[in-house]
Design a protein around this nucleic acid. Structure first.
Lengths: 145, 145
DNA sequence: TAAACTAATTATAAAGATTATTAAATGATA
DNA sequence: TATCATTTAATAATCTTTATAATTAGTTTA
């Protein structure tokens, strides 16, 4: 499952003429396997063991490259640093306001709102962004105590 | 219209026991009158004339205070700095990817998605966030040339 | 395979936004 | 007015991200 994602991603890079370096391979692999939507720093720290002298700039550079190619989405929430999400299919995020956990979920047919907004604002709409905020079940349980 | 907003806001502050200083008054007033969802720095620059020796920290501090009281919402988009929005009624934002202009629009009945998400993820949902991205009519015209 | 060229990485510095700190000033209250 | 808590201003510090320049690695071509 995730290995095929990785394979596809590497193919995409090849086709776009982006070199597949060990660092890029590792960052992609980490992004695909981690379900946590990590920050650049988290990726950096996670790969420190494998690449003792990789620089943070490399992480940022490659995340930018991935984003430009469309492999990765950059998510900005209220907190200080961006989070990065390997783009599989279109989905939305539910964010726990207590522990920060992010869960993906699908919800079809929100295109009509794009049409509506386009009509009301006069904007030529390219895409939209939607997030749900709340408390995850674990944190709800903890609060109950 | 906007004066009543200001009055209400000042009342809220009074009730919460937050002092109404000239700086706070000015920041609130600016936020209410400006339709531009300014950054902290823009607010700072706009009020430099009135308060020649106000510090940026004051702007940040008070925006935090306003946010905690619920008068102001902090918006984080892809760009580096947060934008601040006086919370009137619930509305969504349409953002121009070319010039950055933000337009408000209303869209009723998106509560069902909260219920759906709650059901799928197990989250206790508190609120959601939705944005539309695209090109505003001015920029569309410019591009046409 | 070696030489030449291009791209990527590293290390470091720099920029920009936000927060923390502390002393001085202000406003509320008795 | 005196007192006390809050707020401001000035500044430093922190944190995230980007820019720069030198080195390294990868690719291509002869």
């Amino acid at each position: 499952m995730s290995t095929s994602h990785l394979k596809e991603a590497l193919d995409t890079l090849k086709q776009t003429g982006v070199r597949i370096t060990p660092q890029r391979h590792a960052i992609l692999e980490y992004l695909i396997n981690s379900m946590t939507h990590p920050t650049a720093d988290e990726i950096y720290k996670a790969l420190e063991g494998k690449f003792p002298n990789m620089s943070v700039a490399t992480v940022y550079n490659n995340l930018r490259v991935f984003r430009e190619v469309g492999l990765v989405k950059e998510l900005t929430y209220g907190d200080s640093s961006s989070r990065f999400d390997f783009t599989t299919s279109d989905h939305y995020h539910a964010i726990c306001e207590s522990c920060g956990k992010i869960v993906d979920f699908h919800y079809p047919g929100l295109d009509e709102i794009e049409q509506f907004a386009s009509h009301v604002t006069g904007y030529k709409v390219s895409h939209h962004r939607l997030e749900i905020y709340g408390t995850c079940s674990e944190c709800s349980k903890k609060e109950a105590h």
